[in-house]
Amino acid sequence: MNIDSIYTGFVIDHIGAGKGMMLYKLLGLAKLECPVAMIMNATSKRMGKKDIIKIDGDIDIDMDVIGYVDPDATVNVIREGKLVEKRDITVPKELKNVLFCKNPRCITSTEQELPHIFRLTDEKKRIYRCIYCDTKANN
């Protein structure tokens, strides 16, 4: 894969340095069949260092996950080699089955069909808590 040229897919740019792997994991990119390039510690005029993920495939991308990991990242949609859209990223109010509650006393630990839902409880500090037991997300 030539990482400079995506034909149809996405470039997630301006990811804070060091956050790329978390985004890779939470977006489930390891499960994709299409080529994915992960660039870490790339030089950035604006940020000093940044991570970039390039996905060469037309997939459904969960913008909430990107907003959770780094709302300052940018998403460029590429179609037939051309930039066709820049998607806005906002901090999501709620995340469903993205984070999983690790509290062994949480009801989700025994009732395994329950969706794992985390809600934004402090916008300033960007703190998410499990809607069932209020455990703080620390992914």
């Binding site: 006393r105 949480c106 009801i107 989700t108 809607i131 069932y132």
Partner: peptide, 10 residues
Amino acid sequence: RHPKEGAPHV
């Protein structure tokens, strides 16, 4: 009353 946290939410 339930021993698991968040059971009433369910």
